[in-house]
Design a protein around this nucleic acid. Structure first.
Lengths: 160, 160
DNA sequence: TATTGTTATACTCTATAACTATA
DNA sequence: TATAGTTATAGAGTATAACAATA
């Protein structure tokens, strides 16, 4: 990809920003698109006082009652230390409980409280609705293709 | 999406983590996939002492000699204040220069140095190669579909 | 020895308000 | 007044090392 030498010292005026080199760079588009989704999600979850991470944790715990923190960290694709404050927050708000596992006293079984399950219902409905708006204009087949591709990238050998 | 009540107090053992509620949640998959791409990119760019942000800035400056910082921030989809340290770093390493614009002495025209252009060539080649590995197994049509979808999400009304 | 959860810590990215110098 | 770039700052996400309790 040859670049012409920088023009002589007259005033160069850029009227339109070219992203030709980045145009096929998946990481670039993923970052930009994710920023949009993330910003929208923050707004959507604000009424429930949840962030993407606390929302994801709550959903996984409701769907998997009794799961361990290490399993949850794995499922959320974050490091164990970073999960602790998330669980702390959900527990403090009495949305989940940490229950000692009798058969392995190192571990906690995570379970949602009734309040946690109720918040889950409302938050999931809101997120589903908002995401539908965000993806409006992208047909179902395309969405499925995109999700399948993203899942494949997730599972890339470099990952783990 | 009804959930059965939490099971009685016997030890619940989770052997497989269900993400059924998150399965069609685009944000979830975008985050996970982006994390993989981002981690890979960090490694790819390490030999050049670049991060995703410094790489993106360098590429856009080489492609758009003379562009302003505000244009670059726009193109990178970040806030102007956050761009300053990025430009500082690239300038300190003599990969780009800030050139005062005679016709508007508030603004800088950003230009890559020869060293900047040379680093650009090498880094772009490395990123292209690495991304090809990461996307191996995803055919060209699917890639185009994914990028088109991501670009559409980028342009979502909530964004700009 | 290895694993679960934890603490402490550091780095990066993101977002906002307020300043300066120019226009 | 408004704009380009800047400073300061705060919040959030991510990553690693090291520890106590338990297996």
């Amino acid at each position: 990809m040859k670049k012409p030498a920088v023009k002589p010292a007259e005033a160069t005026v850029v009227t339109h920003v070219s992203d030709v080199t980045l145009r096929n760079f998946m990481g670039y588009h993923m970052k930009r698109a994710f920023n949009v989704v993330q910003t929208d999600l923050v707004q959507t979850l604000k009424p429930f006082d949840l962030r993407m991470l606390t929302y994801t944790a709550l959903v996984l715990i409701v769907d998997n009652p009794g799961m361990r923190q290490s399993q949850l960290a794995d499922g959320m694709d974050i490091e164990r230390p970073n999960l602790v404050v998330i669980i702390d927050e959900l527990e403090r708000r009495e949305l989940i409980i940490r229950e000692r596992v009798p058969t392995d006293r190192r571990a906690y079984a995570l379970k949602a409280t009734l309040a946690g399950q109720q918040l889950y219902e409302k938050a999931v409905a809101a997120v589903t609705k908002h995401e539908a708006l965000l993806l409006d204009g992208i047909d179902d087949a395309t969405r499925a293709t995109v999700i399948a591709a993203l899942k494949q990238i997730e599972k890339s050998p470099r990952k783990g």
